[in-house]
């Protein structure tokens, strides 16, 4: 290795190291987590939504060809929801988006929209797999409509499969 090669190598390792530390910080320091392995829950085949504590809801969500159950959820603003999700047939996808923020993006001039990406505030993104339960906790501060679109191909009518969360 000559000097230029060596310094590039050290810089590259350092750069990737910084990226990885940032990832660990986001996950452990800021609590942005990915789904993990769940072994302590009873399997469920029916959808349920109930208030476990004041302001804390528990949602058992079912994905199946080609609908989510419940298809529409109403909760008050400021609620926190523990989402448990499974599928009764094939693999489905589940991502929550905030429609009001998406619309705000549209209202901006085209040039700004092209140049500056605007994060739409979806922070729940799960795979619904038969034979397994997955979990995420979501907080809904802003009133509005939150859209859920099935984002894994699940058969001929996949593009019809969606749900909404209405925060009042």
């Amino acid at each position: 290795m000559d000097r230029a090669e060596r310094s590039t190598f050290v810089f590259s390792v350092g750069l990737l190291g910084v990226f990885f530390i940032a990832v660990v910080y986001a996950s452990m320091g800021r609590g942005i987590e990915v789904p993990t392995c769940i072994v302590d829950r009873e399997p469920f085949a029916r959808d349920t939504l109930f208030e476990r504590q004041p302001g804390l809801y528990e949602l058992h969500m079912i994905a199946r060809m080609w609908e989510f159950r419940p298809g529409e959820i109403r909760i008050p603003a400021g609620s926190e929801v523990d989402i448990y999700l499974t599928s009764l047939d094939v693999i489905h996808g589940f991502m929550i988006e905030n429609e009001t923020e998406s619309k705000a993006h549209m209202a901006r001039p085209l040039g700004v929209a092209l140049a500056v990406p605007r994060y739409t505030g979806h922070n729940v993104n799960l795979m619904a797999v038969p034979g397994a339960i997955t979990y995420a906790r979501a907080r809904f501060e802003q009133p509005g409509t939150y859209k859920i679109v099935c984002h894994e191909y699940c058969g001929d009518n996949h593009h019809f499969m969606n749900a909404t969360i209405i925060v009042e």
């Binding site: 789904p35 993990t36 392995c37 769940i38 996808g93």
Partner: peptide, 12 residues
């Protein structure tokens, strides 16, 4: 990363 049934530590 977004799958169930795999521990998040192993994903990391």
């Amino acid at each position: 990363y977004m799958d169930p049934a795999i521990g998040s530590n192993w994903k990391l």
